[in-house]
Amino acid sequence: MKRLFFAVFLLVVVLMLVSCAPAKPANHLEAIKQAGVIKVGTSADYPPFEYVENGEKVGFDIELMTEIAKRMGVKLEWVDMPFDSLIAGVQQGKIDASISGFNYSEERDKVVDFTISYYTQEDAFTVSESFSGTFNVPEDAANYKVGVQTGTTQDGWLTDNLVTTGKMPEANLFRYDRVDQVALDLKSGRIDVMMSDYDPARYLVKSLGGLKVVWHGVLTSGPFNIVVPDGDQELKAEMDKIIKQLQDEGFIEQLIAKYIAQ
């Protein structure tokens, strides 16, 4: 009997949760304002843009988004997920938007939309200090074992330009869930070269030690954008407006000074 009761109880709980669907607002932005909260996805393992310090989420993207939400007049709810699930998360509506050091890419554009750029990022190639090879141009990476974070634009660049064209064997490209994992393997010598965004590379070089950046410049990256659902013009317009405001006010420059220029 007790078992039956429990089963029914569980069923009722599930049904209750299911029925808690909100009323249909006009569009996504309306829905967010109505709910009073925006759910933003990020992968808080990417210093200096989003990471955890003293139990709090901190970083360039974190502070930027916090300010944006404030100006939108809604509360900010962070949803932390592995980087490669974020795009899917926006697609499926699990999160309203995502800020996580996203570069614009055509592939991503097919399934989501982007705000205007809030920052310009360079790419970087990092090696260990004891590296004895030559590295003058990005294509030199083809001669070594290269590590990269999975699902990033760098991942795309290496795959399309070096592996698919045959310049580099597939087996020499190592993909990782997080960029700090790449750096650790770089330091231990399991790989020779790391390709990533420039600012995180500098953070890792400083924090880990024993590494150095051998090349940086705009290759795949360039602009950082916030990701919003495909076709969501209202949300994009709202965020674009605020980003422009923050740029004009010098807020973004302050963030750069705080997190990046070191």
């Binding site: 996805g41 808080a44 393992d45 990417y46 210093p47 990471y51 955890v52 310090e53 949803v79 932390d80 997920m81 592995p82 699930s85 998360g89 699990k94 997080r178 960029v179 700090d180 994992q181 750096a183 650790l184 890792l204 924090s207 880990l208």
Partner: peptide, 23 residues
């Protein structure tokens, strides 16, 4: 469930590892 975005023990460990490089 860390892979689904639920902030339990493992995910928190990953975040700390990423910040401090002390896996």
């Amino acid at each position: 469930v860390y892979a689904l975005g639920v902030a339990e023990i493992l995910r928190r460990a990953q975040q700390l590892s990423a910040t401090t490089q002390q896996p």
